[in-house]
Nucleic acid binder design. Structure first.
Lengths: 211, 211
DNA sequence: GTCTATAGCTGGATAGAC
DNA sequence: GTCTATCCAGCTATAGAC
């Protein structure tokens, strides 16, 4: 993971343009889907002429790949690891907190990722088959050790990981629905805190790590 | 909810064609997105000429609306209610079982719904603002009564509903990822049973309804 | 590096024969 | 009710002036 997308000086005109385009593209791909997002709409959102966008990225497919790469880098930076040094309670607490933070701070990344998976993960199959599968197996092993040592209840570790993923990502992917149901325009300051507390509390109890 | 999409005789040629087209459209809309799915591709999947598809549905937008309506009807039939007559344990058990069943038996419906929400819920805002918001408030009130009566732990009822939705739907929406990680081609017979058991067990414990 | 113009193609939708 | 042919809008991508 963490493959640098490009490697020019950070302040350069190219670097800045690419960043603006990618942010615009991410937004458009989420709202309109791959086919629905047009190079023109991406350019408009980025505030650049269409030709410039194609000058930097050659073609639409390349833009999409760059957006996906950005998404995976974000994922990796946000929750690349589980801290297993201090036992299951701390590990789960930190893991949930990191995932919730990701969902509230980078909902776009979560949404792009979710859409890719729902649509069959054509571009992410390789990522899932290698990196992600490995990741899940490693972390599941950690949990299994704690279970075998009687440090936590016997809950299927893989299903536990899926549960933590789904409950945390939900606040990013289903943002629109959650806000509509709660009759609110945006998440507020302490929504993230409350969600983190609720999920940590609930999941620790589910793992038999809390009264 | 439960608005009949059309009302001709079930055996009629029109009824059969419409059903075939909608099933094909659902598949295509998931795989390619709204813009990416072409009337031609829907027709091909349905095994009909393009003109016939447009003969039945007038235009692409109408096909999509019909698919969404079908999705909401499925949602409604599957988990339209929570049985509150026998206390929180039975209510939660039945609710989880119904949602998991939905996810394994109608993953397409869940996927179409998820994509709509992720993309901003343009077509479902009204459904969420009225029906869904009301539904959540009613059910939350049930949980609140049980909490006030000391029949279950004090967990935020709305967040609990979101948690049950997210964990159950995950097995439909992220099907591809789950199967890839577990290195399997398809879900098998007892996957549904195991997931139901795991989630029921875990969530009841989270609610303080199990040792 | 920026932008205009346009070639070339795809796809939605209709007309009209059967 | 079924299907072919076709029109036209909109999109990607490139050529080339500045």
């Amino acid at each position: 993971m963490s493959t640098k997308t490009s490697n020019e000086k950070p302040g350069s005109i190219r670097a800045r343009s690419e960043a603006v385009i990618l942010a615009a593209a991410q937004k458009e791909f989420i709202l309109q889907g791959y086919k629905g997002a047009t190079v023109q709409s991406i350019a408009d959102t980025a505030g650049l002429p269409k030709a410039n966008v194609l000058y930097y990225f050659k073609n639409k497919e390349n833009i999409y790949h760059a957006v996906l790469q950005l998404t995976l880098d974000t994922w990796d930076r946000g929750i690349g690891d589980i801290d297993s040094s201090q036992g299951p309670v701390v590990a789960i607490e930190k893991f949930i907190a990191a995932k919730v933070k990701m969902s509230f701070e980078h909902p776009q990344a979560s949404k792009i990722y979710a859409m890719e998976i729902i649509q069959g993960a054509l571009h992410l199959k390789e990522f899932a088959r290698t990196y992600l599968r490995q990741w899940v197996r490693e972390k599941a092993k950690l949990f299994q050790v704690w279970i075998d040592n009687g440090e936590m209840k016997n809950v299927d570790p893989v299903k536990l990981i899926f549960l933590i993923w789904s409950t945390t990502q939900h606040y990013a992917d289903f943002e629109t629905q959650i806000l509509t149901i709660m009759n609110r325009a945006d998440y507020e300051e302490d929504d993230m805190t409350q969600v983190t507390e609720f999920l940590t509390d609930f999941i620790l109890r589910g793992c038999g790590l809390k009264p």
